[in-house]
Write a protein that binds this DNA or RNA. Structure first.
Lengths: 221, 221
DNA sequence: CGTGAATGCGAGCTATTGCTCATGTTATAC
DNA sequence: GTATAACATGAGCAATAGCTCGCATTCACG
């Protein structure tokens, strides 16, 4: 294996014509398919090019190195993940806390059910890409949004250190849902996991058990 | 890179003399050091042998392939992780639920503070080793133990699906602590995270907020 | 058209890896 | 002391890997 030698920080050419934009897409599609099918071990630039039906040369015309391929794949994924969250946290001040939290969890579940296999490989098997890694960037941005949302309802909260609480809560939700994609897909789809998670989080944050949950759910719809 | 060709399921020789037992240890030590220092990318059999001060030949006398090196490293780590948990869950019937849960969390924190760097590389960067992977095996055994412990106090629980609850709770604890090793080491060491986690979990499981927590902690000591 | 730029090609270079094997050295058994 | 098994060595093989570069093809546009 030639050691990824940081090929002189090469910002490769951006596609200008339609033909090349299609090439870029076809390459990324192939990359995703390979990751899903064979994991990171199968992810070689030669194989990606072959699967995409283009030559390695073309691949390296738009991606300076193998790492950047992963980077772009991750970027696109995060974009999708963040869309919903922004909308929900923006409305936090107008709605009851429990409702916002349930909405966030539901949205997270929904996002994780889109191409779950790729999502999983990307976050479990792909080596860390340094401090610019999407997981870190996404995680901290998500935490900031949730923190801001919770702050609009500070009086309802029964936690001391809000930062710590946000850290705990976002981490728990993210990881529970993420793991459940592989381990408990039925509970994910049925909403059972959403239900329990919501109960756990709301109870923790407000200090009061969320018992009238059925009615709350009805009210939210 | 020669593709790990499952070298004919070779069970290598086990060390018989003291000299060779020392060799095995020195190899595993070097392997751990390399993983911690350079991550999985730096983990090559040649480098491990060199760092250990032995030849590759000697390495392959005791480990059939690179994978098995990781396997042994993981096995030793899990052994350490499980020791405390077994003791605590065994006593679950005799103690209040909240106390058992706090003890489990505290023990998990303690375990994660032993060689945290190695623990992290092992669980984040090392490729999955198939269905025999330690993470899966360990996770499901841990879940079984916790489930059995909770069952001895079923009447205090306010959850419907105990399996789901155990899944949620063990996952949340494990991942929160794991992430906190990297993100919030101070909260981990100060006990703040233990405190909040315990509150969250006990509240969720019993349906009652754990408010008199200070006194509970005092009683546990 | 024709010309330069954009795009595409793929053989093959260089580096490195996992692992073997022929050979040497040390311990144990008798 | 000698034979046998355990242990150790390290040059080097086979297999890839990431990536380059000289050249071919296609496009935009006058």
């Amino acid at each position: 294996m030639a050691k990824l030698k940081k090929t002189s920080a090469n910002p490769r050419k951006a596609p200008a014509q339609d033909r090349s934009r299609a090439t870029v897409d076809v390459i990324l599609d192939a990359a995703a398919r390979i990751l899903v099918k064979g994991g990171y071990a199968a992810f070689t630039t030669n194989r990606v090019a072959e699967t995409a039906g283009v030559s390695v040369g073309s691949l390296y015309q738009y991606f300076p190195n193998k790492e950047s391929l992963l980077g772009e794949l991750m970027r696109r994924h995060v974009e999708e993940l963040e869309r919903g969250m922004v909308a929900i946290t923006a409305d936090a001040a107008k709605r009851p806390l429990a409702e916002t939290i349930r909405a966030l969890i539901e949205d997270n579940v929904r996002a994780h059910l889109v191409d779950p296999a790729l999502h999983q490989v990307l976050s479990e098997e792909v080596p860390r890409l340094g401090p610019l890694d999407w997981r870190i960037a996404y995680g901290s941005r998500a935490a900031m949004r949730v923190r801001a949302a919770l702050e609009t309802r500070r009086s309802e909260l029964a936690v001391g250190d809000l930062d710590l609480a946000v850290y705990l809560v976002t981490g728990a939700v993210e990881s529970a849902i993420h793991d459940a994609v592989a381990d408990r897909p039925d509970d994910l789809r049925s909403g059972a996991l959403t239900e329990e998670l919501t109960r756990m989080i709301v109870g923790y944050l407000t200090g009061k058990p969320l018992s009238a949950r059925r009615s709350l759910r009805a009210a939210a719809e």
